[in-house]
């Protein structure tokens, strides 16, 4: 059955048409938030609503810039998300390499236990973590948030990275071993370059997750200097009203950096995902 030229063209139009529609649905809410962020308070509550601001205004941004959303909140978000994602990837590589390349009693069981930690509801641990933090005088510090995030994201990170290491043929390492390389050297010189897309994927997924993390932060953080951006956003929403243009301007500041990070890393990420970074 050979399809004719015309059929192909129709196929192509349908395919592209549907995809364009999906893309529009995907970006519309964010684009509208961007548009709202440039409206005035008055225009935000105009009936009927406008798609594009009638009078462009930076009032929302002015208020955000005056507030502590950028400094310290967004800075905290940056420190916590970057710090925890990097540590997760480093620890994850070591652990995943052990799981992937060594036979030892309990290997499978330990993997299952760690994977099972993904099933723990987030709120479960928070009371204990709060007490632990206060005992070690670590509450409201970036370090403690990073430590919590690392433990929280590590199971998923190990899982992703193990899939990437599993995909590397073992023969490549064997020659290095014969040359006398230890496991750390093998990881450094063979695994890291070959598993890079997988590691980037793990990093990006953890980074996006912890950049946006809300539940842990809102319970754990009591201090204005330690709050992260998603929690700090609540500063613009008090009891009975939300200043939507300010809120949306704040949201733009939160979305932009992580969107740029995604854009920079997207090739490696897509490549790894398409090669099956997340496996059954």
């Amino acid at each position: 059955m050979v399809r004719t030229q015309q059929q192909r063209r129709i196929d192509s139009i349908i395919v592209n048409g549907l995809l364009i529609m999906i893309c529009l649905i995907s970006i519309f809410p964010v684009a509208y938030a961007l548009s709202t962020s440039f409206k005035t308070q008055r225009e935000v509550i105009s009936k009927p609503p406008y798609l594009i601001p009638q009078n462009w205004s930076t009032d929302g941004y002015d208020q955000v810039l005056k507030s502590s959303l950028i400094r310290p909140h967004l800075l905290n978000t940056f420190i916590n998300a970057t710090g925890s994602s990097i540590i997760i990837v480093v620890l994850g590589v070591l652990a995943a390499y052990a799981f992937s390349r060594y036979k030892f009693p309990g290997n499978k069981l330990l993997q299952l236990v760690i994977l099972g930690m993904i099933m723990i509801p987030t709120l479960t641990n928070l009371i204990a973590l709060y007490r632990l933090g206060s005992q070690f005088d670590l509450l409201n510090t970036n370090i403690y948030m990073i430590l919590i995030y690392v433990a929280n994201g590590l199971p998923f990170g190990i899982w992703i990275i193990k899939a990437a290491i599993d995909a590397i043929p073992i023969e490549i390492e064997e020659s290095a071993r014969i040359d006398g390389c230890g496991p750390l050297q093998v990881i450094r010189y063979i695994i890291l370059p070959l598993a890079l897309p997988g590691l980037v994927t793990a990093f990006l997924m953890e980074f996006v997750f912890f950049w946006n993390e809300f539940l842990i932060a809102v319970v754990m953080l009591d201090n204005n200097n330690a709050k992260t951006a998603t929690v700090g956003l609540l500063n613009f929403q008090n009891s009975y009203q939300t200043a939507y243009h300010v809120w949306m301007a704040g949201s733009v500041f939160i979305i932009a950096p992580v969107l740029i990070t995604f854009f920079v890393l997207r090739r490696q990420f897509f490549r790894a995902m398409l090669q099956g970074a997340v496996k059954g």
């Binding site: 620890l91 652990a95 390499y97 204990a128």
Partner: peptide, 25 residues
Amino acid sequence: LVPFWLLLPSLIFLAVLQLYPVIYS
């Protein structure tokens, strides 16, 4: 013991900040 050393940092994290809180819960 190599796999043990490789796993140790992760296990410490998970034991202190996942397992202990779960038991505490």
